[in-house]
Every structure is written in C-alpha cells, then in structure tokens.
Amino acid sequence: MPGSETVLNNYLIVGALLFTLGLVGFLTRRNLIVMFLCAELMLQGVSLTLVAFGAYHGTWGGQVFAIFSLALAAAEAGIALALFVVIFKRGSSLDISIWQDLREADQPAIVDEPDVEAPPVEQQWPHLTVAGPLPRRTTEPKEARHDRPPAPVEIVSRRADALVNTLPSPPRGRGAGGEGGNS
C-alpha cells in the first residue's frame, strides 16, 4: 500500500540535494580523503532515496538495497584508504593534482589556481593570568654557579608569610610557623 507522495517527495529532494553537494565537493576539493568523503556523501543521498522509495511502497527492498550499499561503502573505504596510504608513501602528499604527472606526454598540465603561499598560521596559546605573587629569588645568577659550590636555594613566599601572620600562634612552636620562619 503506497504511502504519501508528498512525504516521498520531501525525502527525494533531501537525497537529491545531498547527492548534489557530494558532487560539488568531489569536483572541487583537491584532497584525496575529502574527495572520497564526498563520494560517501553521494552514497548517503542514494541510500536516503532508496529507503524513501521502500517506505513509500511499504516493502523491504529499499532497505535491503541500502544495507548492500552500506556494505559496499565499507569495502570501498577499506580499499581506498589502503590505496591512500600507499599513495601518500610514494608522493608524500594527498594533493590530487600531483598525480597529473601520469598524463600523456603531449597533454598540457592543468593549472587550476595560482599557487599562493599561505601565511603561516600563528598559534595562539592561551594567556595564563598570574596567580599569586612571584617568588623572590635569593640565589646568585647562573654564571656564578660553576665557581663555587652552589649556595642553598632559599625561596621565600610572601604568601606563606602572610599566612603565618594571620594564623594564631602555634601551640607547639613548630608546624607552619617553623616552615616560614627561615626568612
């Protein structure tokens, strides 16, 4: 028993647009992997169409076809990715244009767009805010280290001092006060 043709039309339009987008990407992009992804996108559009027809007619045939196309896509992806690995080992690039070296000798090379060297992307690291005061360094500069045996490094934290001042007097005379009291 057929379903609604309006619903069928909607799914068919979505499938057709997915197929078209896959076609545009396949024609335009130059990365081998992206081109293959676009081919998979076209397969998705066709799968959507098949399932829509199956649901419209109320039969299992569309879903069975879509399952077969899914298995085909898996096989295709395995083979194609193995080929991409080999191609990358040989050419050390995934650019599709370098393989026009395989053309006939009398064919002109295709220059698709001028090769503009892109400016290097400046990595923006996050800027950490200063948390707390800087520790005061009481040692000599580094050059003096080799002359004499290294002096004991003494790093004094003002925050620890402040902490000690706010604390009540330690009951046993040791503990937190003993650590900060070296200054």
């Binding site: 545009v24 024609l27 992206v34 690039s93 244009s97 698709d112 060297e117």
Partner: peptide
C-alpha cells in the same frame, strides 16, 4: 595543507551542481 585552501574550478563545479 596548502592544497586544502584552494579549490579546483569552484565556479564551474557549483554551476554544475
């Protein structure tokens, strides 16, 4: 990569689509 920032005939491809 550098070849990802360029397209191959974007106008004709889009017109075809």
């Amino acid at each position: 990569a550098a070849f990802d920032r360029r397209s191959r005939e974007p106008l004709l491809s889009t017109a075809t689509g």
